[in-house]
Amino acid sequence: MMLTASSGHKGLPSMPAVSRTPVLSVRNVGVEFPTRHGLLTATEGVSFDIAPGEILGMVGESGAGKSLTGMSVIGLLEPPGRLSAGEIWLESERIDTLSLRERQRVRGRKIGAIFQDPLTSLHPLFTVGKQLCETIRYHLGLDKKAARARALELLNQVGIPGAEQRIDHYPHQFSGGMRQRVVIALALAAGPSLIIADEPTTALDVSVQAQITALLKQLCRENGTAILLVTHDMGVIAETADRVAVMYAGRVVEIGPALDVIQRPRHPYTQGLMNSIPSLKIRAEALNQIDGSMPRLDSMPQGCAFHPRCSFAGPRCAKQRPPLAAVGENMSAACWLHQGGVNGDA
């Protein structure tokens, strides 16, 4: 199954991103929507790397820009949405400037996509075997027989029992969890070096969720695949991601090793988010809540977008926007508290 250029460090725990050339490098990317009332900036200045065999988790509330970031990488931004700035590099090739046809090649061959609803990725009228074989033949140029053999291998790899019979079944004949496995098999078909998984387990039961995340981790370890895992479930992040990026109002506000971000977050928004999760150990009288809600795109406050809700905010926060900057060794946060204080001048 050595299909990816980057495979070759089987079973190794993932290493810090700096030590190897990243599979994916997102540099200062923004997404905008031209509307009748002017240009809406949906995301801005988004930067991160993912190393081979690394899982980068991405969290943040609904509307924060997680899916748009994933879609920009896959090259599936829905018009009129478009990139406003930045560069996207995949294995040393710049992909955001490619032609439509070239992007399509990259999409299936080098980037696999998994979405929340498995049915959006599967055609209801074709058997899963047919869909897998088409993809394999298109991207790898195998003949019919070899493609079917590879399809079977993939279905076995993602843990579908009785793959020999089930390969000729239609998507509706599978349970939700099994369908998501088929989608993962489809995403893996061409041996991609990067997988974008947008809420892949949100629609599934906890027990099935655990099975799917274990599968993603295993693929990542065995094939050296890099994974961008978008989810709002901190539990999934804690058990799956190596690093995590927290998005708020279209920007990455904190990024660092998963356990550090979860257990010792530096950004006040991440702190609030972590504190609002009910604990299994103690039954608190009330949960910590962040009052208010995330600003809408057309009414972004000046300065730090979190300042209207932040209990640490100072005069500087309402005027200047804090950049994402290193806090300690592996972490970065976009907050004045860690960059000279909230009282500094504008």
Binding site: Q209, Q211, A214, G235, A238, E239
Partner: peptide
Amino acid sequence: TIPNLEDPNRDRKPLGG
């Protein structure tokens, strides 16, 4: 199966079935 955020089990063997 509930992850414990204070001490997550990163080597979880999912229970089948």
